[in-house]
Design a protein around this nucleic acid. Structure first.
Lengths: 160, 160
DNA sequence: CTACAAGTTCAAGCCGACTTGAGGTCAAGC
DNA sequence: GCTTGACCTCAAGTCGGCTTGAACTTGTAG
């Protein structure tokens, strides 16, 4: 399997060609040349896209991911930064866990209105108070987009 | 403590006045009247804002939150919907946990490049494959905004 | 009574991550 | 050698959640 054109990369990863061009423009991926006008990609781009997907799924911004991956392979992916990101995620996870428990409790709780329940109020207070002191979670696009993509999602995102 | 003007609500919740107006326009909160041009809010709006904050922190869109809270008090906050939202969060949490572990592993792992490590690759594949099949996490605004708000964040978001 | 700080409206702008559309190029199959 | 459809570029549009600015009104302190 040698150089792939944009359509093949798109097909194999589920990432739209427009997004691939956008990523290239942002320096997240690079094509290894052109055949005429058409971009040619090295299969390694599949790995890189998988990493980008990992980052996106983790809620990181493209700029952050870019910083973590570095321009070429992935040299800036140093331990310290990775730990920092992991901790960031940890806080997010804790926050979301609190909220999930609040929701579950509200669903279970016999109080007529959730806000009448002290446990729920406590959870709300916790979530509310910590609201702006945690790492932001990156934006995911709308359902429609997901569906659109799911149609093309053929399974493998490279790897193995 | 009776009717509050927009500045007091803002001060007590840390939510900017512009946001409060925006929320009112979207039907998420309601003022109980005016003194001249100025909005007057019932203290109950503090509870409501705390719930909205809870939803935002959980990554839900304003429209979803609106649907869950209902126009008046919180009648549509039915058990089924709450459970569904909790499950949604559960998936998100699981996904984030996988990613966190991947990052931690990469930081710990002796392989020169993370992608050379089978464990990491496996995690990447998992995260990549599930990428578009999980609930979207709502967009949080940039760091700068958080900081701006934190300046005003005086602690209580109503409740006790 | 007057000044003014703080409120108001409405339209427009911003950010990130893409998508869309118009108009152009070109490699490959007949 | 010509058509065709997949690719290209560049500019502009979209979406959510707000913020900002200009122009205006008003409750309140002095």
């Amino acid at each position: 399997m040698k150089d792939m054109d944009i359509a093949e990369v798109s097909r194999r990863t589920g990432v739209p060609a427009s997004t691939l061009r956008y990523y290239e423009e942002k320096g997240l991926i690079a094509s290894i040349g052109r055949r005429g006008l058409r971009r040619l990609f090295d299969p390694a781009v599949l790995d890189r896209l998988a990493l980008i997907a990992l980052g996106r799924a983790g809620g990181f911004a493209l700029d952050e991911i870019s910083a973590m991956l570095g321009p070429d392979g992935m040299p800036k992916m140093d331990r310290g930064r990775l730990h920092a990101k992991a901790n960031e995620l940890d806080h997010t996870i804790q926050r979301l866990t609190t909220i999930r428990e609040a929701l579950r409790h509200a669903a279970r709780c016999p109080a007529a209105q959730p806000m009448e329940c002290p446990t729920f109020r406590r959870a709300v207070r916790l979530a509310g108070a910590g609201r702006f002191e945690v790492a932001p979670i990156g934006p995911f696009k709308a359902e429609a987009v997901s569906v659109t993509r799911r149609k093309r999602q053929t399974g493998d995102v490279s790897l193995e």
